[in-house]
C-alpha cells in the first residue's frame, strides 16, 4: 500500500466522520467545529488532486471566513443544547430517511457495480505539474476565458454585502412593522 492510497483513505474517512458529526451533534458549536474539520480535510483532498491554489482558497474562504461567520452568529445566539434538535413527526421523518436511503442506495449500487466490474480502467493521471504551473494555467483560464463571470461575481458580492448590512440594520429585520 503506497503513501497515496493511505492518504486517500485517511482523508476520506476523516471527511465522512466529521461530516456525520456535523449532522449528528446536538450542540451547534460542536457542529461548527466538525464543519471546520471537514473543510480542512476537503482542502487536503484538493491537494491530493493537485489543485494547490484551490486548496489554499478553500482554507482561507471556508475554514477561515465562513467558519468565523458561523461561529460569530452562534456566539450572538447563545444557544444551549437544543431540546428538539431533529424534526419530529414519524411519517415525514420516515419519508425523509427514505429519501436519504434511496440516495445512499444509489451510492451502494455504484460501489457494488464498481467492485464487481473488477478494475476500473487505468486512471489517466496527468503527469505531476508543479504548483506554480498549475496556478498559472488556472489564472490564465480564469482571466481569459471566464473574465465576464469573474466581474459578475464581483458585482454580486457587492450587492450581497450591501443587502446583508441593510437586512441586519433594519429594525426588526424582515419583520418590520409598517
Amino acid at each position: 500500500m503506497t503513501a497515496d492510497v493511505f492518504i486517500f483513505w485517511f482523508l476520506a474517512i476523516l471527511t465522512i466522520v466529521s461530516a456525520l458529526s456535523v449532522v449528528l451533534m446536538t450542540n451547534p458549536i460542536y457542529s461548527a467545529l466538525s464543519l471546520a474539520m471537514t473543510m480542512v480535510s476537503v482542502a487536503a483532498i484538493f491537494v491530493t488532486l493537485q489543485a494547490y491554489f484551490l486548496a489554499g482558497v478553500q482554507l482561507i474562504v471556508y475554514a477561515g471566513a465562513v467558519m468565523v461567520l458561523f461561529v460569530m452568529v452562534l456566539m450572538l445566539f447563545d444557544l444551549k443544547n437544543e431540546l428538539q434538535a431533529f424534526s419530529r413527526g414519524k411519517f415525514t421523518g420516515a419519508i425523509k430517511v427514505g429519501a436519504v436511503g434511496i440516495l445512499a442506495g444509489l451510492i451502494v449500487g455504484a460501489v457494488g457495480s464498481f467492485i464487481m466490474a473488477g478494475k476500473s480502467g487505468a486512471p489517466v493521471t496527468p503527469e505531476a505539474s508543479t504548483s506554480a504551473d498549475a496556478t498559472k494555467a488556472l489564472s490564465e483560464h480564469l482571466f481569459f476565458n471566464h473574465v465576464f463571470g469573474f466581474e459578475a461575481l464581483g458585482v454580486l458580492l457587492l450587492v450581497i454585502a450591501v443587502g446583508t448590512v441593510a437586512l441586519s440594520r433594519s429594525k426588526g429585520g424582515t419583520h418590520a412593522k409598517h
Binding site: 471527511t15 449532522v23 457542529s31 452568529v73 437544543e82 436519504v100
Partner: peptide, 17 residues
C-alpha cells in the same frame, strides 16, 4: 458527502446547522 448534507437539511431543525 452530498447524502450526509442532504440528510442534515432534511432532518435538523436549527437554521444554523
Amino acid at each position: 458527502l452530498f447524502s450526509i448534507g442532504m440528510a442534515g437539511v432534511l432532518l435538523r431543525r436549527n437554521i444554523i446547522v
